[in-house]
């Protein structure tokens, strides 16, 4: 009877050992590897100490990142929004420039520079889909639309579609507020609520479409176009077919 807890303890310890990430193969210390990568790829715009950098004219090339924290570094690198070839460019989602190990190293290094939001833990499987939906409609749909397909903002900005985002990226974005997106702190969304939202966003990737082809899930505009450019031609085609005489019949009639 007394053996069981001991066994459990040993098992836990084993699990703990397994869960510790293996040291990065190349540089040994991930933070040092991260520093190397940072100085190489990021410091020209964000500054060697993460304080931002100015060009010759005194304009900010890149914002300070010292207090961006894990979450921001992970979000920008994982979604390929950083690095940018040119600091004038708008960050857009593309294939990440670094592999996962390098991203982990950079994230660790940026986190060590200052004091910023940590990467939120999300357990999507345990999250509450219904609550997530409510929170999504409360906080997210205004910009990203009820179906998560994104939406227009002012002056050429847009809220991106959410389907490409991985759960950890969505969670990081909620805490960071990248670009135009506002920041959602603990008061707005607790850690569990972030996971709920992420679960609903994952659901929206492939929602139930019991009605058939979703035609973009963008509401009445695509519906109107289907009506006018498919429905109306079909109806007019039927009318035309009925309302005109078949040439075959005419020949037969003359027989």
């Amino acid at each position: 009877m007394r053996v069981a807890p001991a066994v459990a303890l040993v098992a836990l310890a084993g699990a703990a050992v397994v869960l510790v990430p293996p040291p990065a193969a190349a540089g040994g210390d991930p933070e040092a590897e991260g520093e190397r990568l940072y100085l190489e790829g990021c410091s020209s715009c964000h500054g060697e100490d993460g304080g931002g950098a100015e060009d010759d004219a005194g304009n900010l090339r890149g914002p300070p990142v010292a207090d961006s924290g894990e979450a921001a570094a992970f979000y920008y690198l994982s979604t390929g929004r950083m690095p940018l070839a040119n600091s004038e460019e708008q960050p857009r989602r593309k294939d990440p420039a670094y592999d996962e190990e390098q991203i982990a190293a950079l994230v660790a290094y940026v986190a060590s520079l200052g004091d910023g939001p940590t990467l939120p833990e999300v357990d999507v499987a345990a999250a509450d889909l219904v609550r997530g939906g409510e929170l999504f409609r409360e906080n997210c749909q205004a910009c990203h639309s009820a179906s998560g397909s994104g939406g227009a903002l002012s002056y050429g900005r847009a809220a991106p579609p959410l389907a490409p985002a991985r759960p950890d990226e969505t969670a990081a974005a909620i805490r960071v507020g990248p670009g135009q997106m506002p920041v959602f702190g603990e008061e707005a969304l607790s850690a569990a609520e972030v996971a709920d939202v992420v679960r609903y966003v994952e659901y929206l990737d492939a929602p139930a479409d019991p009605g058939g082809l979703p035609i973009g899930r963008l509401g009445p505009i695509p519906e109107g176009f289907v009506g006018w450019f498919l429905g109306v031609p079909l109806l007019l085609g039927a009318t035309y077919w009925i309302g005109t005489r078949s040439p075959v019949r005419r020949r037969k009639g003359s027989l």
């Binding site: 910009c143 939406g151 900005r157 809220a159 135009q180 997106m181 920041v183």
Partner: peptide, 12 residues
């Protein structure tokens, strides 16, 4: 008016 563009401080 729920769309907040934080960088520009605009509500849309």
């Amino acid at each position: 008016v729920g769309l907040y563009q934080a960088e520009e401080g605009l509500l849309l």
